[in-house]
Design a protein around this nucleic acid. Structure first.
Lengths: 355, 355
DNA sequence: CTGTTAGCGCATTCAT
DNA sequence: ATGAATGCGCTAACAG
């Protein structure tokens, strides 16, 4: 059995409450005895029992982090940032991977409630409103990331997908491109739709007519990228630029271009959404729209911690807000100005201002 | 306040102990009352308090997972597998990311103890032996993955790095290569040393003299890959094959080869250690030695669960074992037989038998 | 400033 | 088969 408050108290010759007070560092104890108790506790290797403390204080110092997978680069960046920041603040992260399946999500949310987590950060499937409500009402603030929840009851940190896609498309238009192929990903997701709409808006504003056969919807996987390229380049008037609007299809796009010997930026200007190490090291380094996963994670932690603090202090629940974290165009070397000679495309990585 | 056993008991008109028994499904209660209690508990939305239960039973149903980062593809695959499997078994995963820093690791291990985790899966830095001992002695079995711990007190699941590297090198030798550049990564890590030794063993057995200037040590990052290529190809007699023995330097190797217009598999045969999606979709698809991250994770979960069960059943601590999970050569298209015409290199992905 | 007391919610032993 | 009583380890009133 591990050493408890009781043991420390016995050896120090004081009561458990005195030990508790001394260890809490609240200064409610005599300097002398506090020092002595601290010393003895250290000697004995005393460690508080979080379960007992949690049972008493109704705070587990646990935070649930619920999301689809870890393969997507944005997601594992987020998990790293969230874990590191919460860890520093004394919270432990309980990781739950749902595969975007509502039943899994439900199971995990229930378990998180059982463990009396102090808060939850979630990429919601959207199908478990009652559970999220129960958590939030039960003093475990819920904050969503990447997706917002239909009932706008939770703080939400979202990507600026419309703006990012708009900026990316404008960048290509600025380089003189008029026929821009766009690989949507799934059109039934918010991010898919928003990125598409940013693209359409840019075209519209610049008076470039939209050719529907230049947008390709599918799923979030490499095969969609391959299929899109095939569709685009099996035609007499292929696009001069390609915007792969999601991480997964980018794999397929690169493969298809290479197999058809369509080199970037020579014959095609290539722009991708979401960053990943291999895109930076690819040849040519791929110009991207960065969805700022790190910044999103930082913000979501700030929001959650603020809400958890309010719960502790018994303050009323503040109104929920939605935040958009600006996307950034990161210019590398996969796009070129088709109004200029082929050699003048950018050579250094540049960070464009926020959109 | 949430609904407790007490509430259910009151409404069902029985005592808390009866409710506890009914809900535990141990059949120690009357069929009739059990059904009734189950119904009422469901209606009330009763959920057990894990903290209270844990305090009583000394089991939190929490498992700590401690590792360096999530960027490395092997690591995030492992985390996904571990989380999914433990989740299904009713355990929650507390994720801790150390950045390979002993102080961080110490902090996290202490906190995990505080939370009375039932077990720990860790990629140990090696510097916190006392803490691991404390955990393991305190009924939280420790199992290591990727690295073993110097005191061989814990089950360890390791990659078969020597064999994998040996098999990879032999594959290149079989294709007729005699000058094989080898990018070590960090020579002060077990994996770095073991992969190097597999390479050396293969050369020795085949009677190929080892040219020390064809091995390059550095760190685990892309820059090392670039530097290695520069060293190898700034010489009059460059290698005909290249074995990039770690994930991170592979980025740099690919970049450097491309900048020098040394194409694979035409002018160089390229082999990499560790798999990742982008390697499969690269042009050409890169032949790799797969360290079987998924299988390692599966095994480590099996081992941990077995040990946790023994703790529950009060069985004596079994002796620790070390396991090696076989690496697999996955032949794709980045290597060619230099004794044959350039066109005959493999065209389809093939899985070689286990080594 | 310190000790005594009373639970937090649950599982479990001991009666019945 | 069920109820009453106990305590897991801790914090926080409440007294002194």
């Amino acid at each position: 059995m591990r050493v408890t408050l009781h043991d420390v108290a016995r050896i120090a010759g004081v009561s458990v409450s005195t030990v508790s007070r001394a260890l809490s560092g609240s200064g409610l104890a005599n300097r002398q005895t506090e020092q002595k108790i601290l010393r003895i506790a250290a000697e004995l290797g005393y460690r508080p029992n979080s379960l007992a403390r949690g049972l008493k204080t109704k705070s587990s110092r646990l935070v649930g982090l619920v999301l689809h997978n870890l393969v997507n680069a944005s997601f594992h960046v987020m998990v790293e940032v969230v874990q590191r920041r919460l860890g520093r603040a004394g919270y432990q992260v309980v990781l739950c991977i749902t595969g975007d399946q509502p039943e899994q999500e439900a199971r995990y949310l229930n378990t998180l409630m059982d463990h009396r987590v102090d808060g939850v950060i979630i990429v919601p499937t959207g199908a478990n409103a009652p559970l999220l409500t129960a958590l939030d009402d039960g003093d475990a603030p819920v904050v969503t990331i990447v997706r917002s929840h239909s009932d706008a009851k939770y703080d939400a940190v979202l990507a600026a997908d419309v703006e990012g896609s708009y900026a990316g498309t404008n960048y290509l238009l600025d380089l003189g491109h008029r026929r821009i192929g766009f690989v949507v990903g799934r059109e039934d997701t918010t991010s898919g739709r928003e990125r598409l709409s940013g693209y359409l808006r840019a075209l519209r504003e610049r008076g470039v007519p939209h050719d529907p056969s230049l947008t390709y919807s599918g799923t979030y996987d490499p095969e969609t990228g391959v299929a899109a390229c095939n569709a685009f380049f099996d035609r007499p008037d292929p696009p001069t630029a390609l915007f792969a609007a999601n991480h997964e299809s980018t794999f397929g796009v690169l493969r298809a271009l290479s197999e058809r010997r369509i080199d970037a930026p020579g014959k095609i200007s290539l722009l991708c959404y979401e960053d990943a190490p291999w895109l930076r090291w690819h040849t040519p380094p791929v110009t991207i729209v960065d969805n700022a996963a790190e910044a999103m994670a930082d913000l979501v932690v700030d929001l959650l911690m603020r809400r958890m603090q309010k719960v502790v202090q018994g303050e009323p629940r503040a109104e929920a807000r939605e935040f958009r974290v600006g996307a950034q165009l990161v210019v590398r070397e996969s796009c070129r100005d088709i109004r200029a000679p082929a050699s003048t495309h950018a050579r250094r990585e540049t960070i464009a201002p926020r959109t």
